[in-house]
Design a protein around this nucleic acid. Structure first.
Lengths: 337, 337
DNA sequence: TTGTAGGCGTTATCAT
DNA sequence: ATGATAACGCCTACAA
């Protein structure tokens, strides 16, 4: 593989001059610069990052640690956001997946260290509280789609489930609905609590009473192997006496099953029953007919802006104890009212 | 950061001996070995891959190039398969995404070169024929979920859409269906052609005539921004005179919309109409009620075995012109007959 | 504006 | 079984 010395020889300059050209440093005569660049092209020289890193110990690669990449396919958009940022900023991305295993997590951390990464993004695939076991290392780290346990203050970036659910509930209320059903996510999910409490709050603010809402548990049990009661709960809710006019769902996949239950019961959407979801998982939300009104989880932005924050941490800004929250905008489509 | 020299000093041996211990080389007295390992633990020494690479030029990291990671969320399983393999084999993974942009592709290739990766996996997110623009580099490369244009012989690994569709059609026929509807994928997709022709062949083998099948175009237009006619086509097909008893769909998302159309038309699944999909995209196939009978695209295995093949190429096996094809098994669930 | 010398952390080579 | 020394490709520091 052609090295900086080869280029220097061929161009008749010192290796330091080549280095200067490669790194865009000043103090190179334009003529020399062009000649060197020509040789670089001709010889197909590509700088060796490893050698550069050994000498300067300033790494341009950053690590991504994901947890359950398999169970929530759509959140891959977080990774895409990070990649996009990395590409725009001349960084490269090292990827590893814990599969929820603590030992593996520690091992990954060692691997990243051995690659002397500049910083890391710890990406959770569902919104939750975590305590990453990063060893006792001082690598700059930002938590994405999760937040740290109270004590250990990593900076983080998360979606605002509360605001999203509150806005969405208001959207439904503003369309005149006064009897509202709600099918919950697995209570073990952080988002479940936030979304439900925002729903309750918005409904209370609108002056509805407890008897105006009908809250059901859609999923329960350990995450990844939960019991799914959505379909039967939706059936029960929709075909009971005095059914709601609107049905809010913990996420789009629940809404999806609610559609099936509603259609199976001979109801038309949205004429007989309005349905809204949460997440804006487009494979579902855009495939449903009518398309689903929902609140959008800003996955891509979570990744992109998370990477941006990481860079700031790397460059020395003190962001510890700094937790950023991104809005979940309501996406109005045809399924409500 | 603690280096091999620090360890050597603290252990009272030469740096080469430490190196030997770290790399599990022979000719180290057990006592020395243990002492060194103790010091390594105490000092928290982590080998510097960059330095190792500079010296030995044998890279333990491999690159993944993806194209449209965003449009097909579920195919992230391919990446998961690769990661799993990498982890089991002590390799690290560098990730980059072209977004379908040729220039970016070339740039990624340069970046990978500058990291001196040992080999690369070119991963397409939907099954297709490609001509990767890898520059004139000799980095070992394996194509995953796609195959090379005739001329340039990269080894590849792909799903067997034809076999999957053929088996699935036979499964449907064996359940006694003699009038079958079919909603096609976008013809621009390689899988679309393979699946449809396998369907036609299986139907012909069973002695059905052209009038027994009703083939509709569900999607068309440029990939990523296609026109979706599935819902209306399904409605039309199911509510016409002399409707089919079984409806086969180009993929699970089409089947999903067919469900909606069927339920909307007051049909019961599978009593009035059997529906089958393709892909086994579990977010859809397991959420549908009844759960969807389909053929499983072996995404995970594609990644895992693709990585395995890459290693073999790296180690010098001649696999050029070697194209591996993985079976798509029928997954029987409740939606058929 | 350009070049020289030295060193980063590691492995390879050859001695001991 | 262990060590001394050179070399990998690059950058830093300093000199010219």
């Amino acid at each position: 593989m052609v090295s900086i010395v080869d280029v220097a020889k061929a161009a008749g300059v010192s290796n330091k001059t080549v280095s200067r050209v490669v790194n865009g440093e000043p103090n190179v005569k334009p003529a020399t610069k062009e000649r060197v660049q020509g040789v670089i092209r001709d010889l197909g020289y590509v700088p060796n990052m490893a050698a550069r890193l050994v000498r300067s110990s300033r790494s341009l690669t950053l690590g991504i640690v994901t947890d359950f990449i398999s169970t929530t396919p759509y959140s891959g958009d977080i990774v895409r956001g990070i990649q996009e940022w990395a590409e725009e900023n001349g960084r490269t991305v090292l990827l590893a997946n814990t599969n929820g295993d603590r030992d593996k997590e520690r091992e990954i951390w060692r691997t990243f260290q051995s690659h002397r990464i500049g910083g890391a993004l710890y990406v959770s695939m569902y919104h939750r509280e975590i305590s990453p076991s990063l060893g006792d290392v001082a690598t700059p780290t930002v938590l994405v789609n999760c937040h740290p346990e109270p004590a250990n203050g990593y900076p983080s970036i998360e979606p605002n489930d509360y605001q999203g659910s509150h806005d969405l509930t208001r959207y439904v209320l503003e369309r005149g609905h006064r009897r509202i059903g709600y099918i919950r996510l697995n209570p073990k999910l952080l988002g479940a609590e936030l979304r439900l409490s925002a729903f309750r709050e918005a409904v209370r603010e609108a002056g509805l009473s407890d008897s105006d809402v009908d809250i059901r548990l859609g999923m329960e049990g350990p995450i990844g192997s939960e019991t799914n009661r959505v379909y039967s709960q939706a059936q029960d809710l929709l075909t009971g006496s005095n059914p709601p006019t609107a049905l809010m769902c913990g996420n789009d996949e629940i809404a999806f099953q609610a559609y099936l239950a509603a259609l199976g019961a001979g109801l038309r959407i949205p004429e007989d029953i309005s349905i809204v979801g949460f997440d804006d998982f487009q494979t579902v939300s855009l495939a449903l007919k009518p398309e689903l009104t929902t609140a959008a989880l800003p996955y891509y932005a979570l990744g992109y802006r998370g990477a941006d924050r990481l860079m700031r941490v790397i460059e020395g800004e003190k962001l510890r104890e700094d937790h950023l929250v991104l809005e979940c905008p309501v996406v109005a489509r045809g399924s409500c009212k």
